[in-house]
Design a protein around this nucleic acid. Structure first.
Ligand SMILES: [Mn+2]
Ligand SMILES: [Mn+2]
Ligand SMILES: [Mn+2]
Ligand SMILES: [Mn+2]
Lengths: 149, 149
DNA sequence: TTGGAAATATAGCATTGGCTACATTTCTGT
DNA sequence: ACAGAAATGTAGCCAATGCTATATTTCCAA
């Protein structure tokens, strides 16, 4: 039952292992929350001029202490700023993330709908899928959607 | 700056809120790890006749104590069984999850490739995406891939 | 057969991301 | 102006998921 050096394959090019894929997915998982927060804060700021903890919490479906703690992490990472008892705002880095994430979100929804997924399901599933779509895949989606914009 | 009762909309049908989408994504996040473990244990069992902690850990790119702890959770949830210092095996529930997840994994890869994503990127991204694809979306993927099977 | 290597288990630590309960501050209607 | 309501902040709890270090068990080769 030897399992060493299994199937080395004829590849001379560096090979993508299972571990690479799972490690990639784990790395993304740890940034997905920040992506949702920055995208949401950008939305709220556009709608209301500021993003308040209560509104963030309600839109995400979490309690306000949970939102508050997440915002502390966002601030620590340089993605947001806020003064006590005041609204939350994105830094330039946070705004850049929000723009990037929003574009990805929309493209994923459009792609899903284009291949026949009902809009409701597309919106629902995209909320999770969006975080795992690489640049390469995004480009492919753009090419696929191509003309019919 | 009133934000109460904003845009109630003309819907009579129950509406999907932002919070619903995020709550759904959080629920899925908490099962994604189990899905990867069951799928992997099924693969290893087929390849070697058993799934050993060391092999699980190496394939996932984590340390073996991490894999061991995850297997304890799998056992607690009735998805796997094992005796001390021996291989891990899936219960019927675990095997059912593995089958379902593997089918989803393959369909997602096929769909991505079908819309023009390079196979390498498709495999990489599918590892995360697969967990967030609903039954409805899966059905749409099947319909889209339709004939050219 | 037995000693070292390999595999497995366990202990203990850290962070994340949930929650409830309670404290503090700000806002608002009278 | 001020009292009560609303918003925000903080403390403390928990589970999940990662890690390193160490102990134990099993396997294998001489
Ligand atoms: Mn999302
Ligand atoms: Mn999004
Ligand atoms: Mn996966
Ligand atoms: Mn998979």
């Amino acid at each position: 039952m030897s399992r060493d050096e299994l199937a080395p394959g004829p590849e001379t090019t560096t090979e993508t292992t299972d571990a690479d894929r799972f490690t990639n997915a784990r790395a993304i998982r740890s940034t997905a929350l920040f992506e949702d927060y920055t995208e949401l804060i950008a939305d709220l700021t556009e709608e209301f001029g500021e993003a308040r903890i209560t509104d963030i919490a309600r839109r995400l479906g979490v309690t306000h202490p949970t939102a508050n703690k997440a915002v502390l992490r966002l601030k620590r990472e340089g993605l947001a700023i806020s003064r006590p008892y005041r609204g939350v705002f994105l830094t330039e880095a946070g705004a850049a993330m929000a723009r990037e994430v929003k574009a990805r979100h929309r493209l994923v929804v459009r792609l899903l709908i284009a291949v026949g997924v009902p809009p409701e399901a597309a919106e629902m599933d995209a909320e999770g899928i969006e975080h795992y779509v690489s640049e390469t895949t995004l480009k492919a989606f753009e090419a696929y959607l191509g003309g019919r914009d």
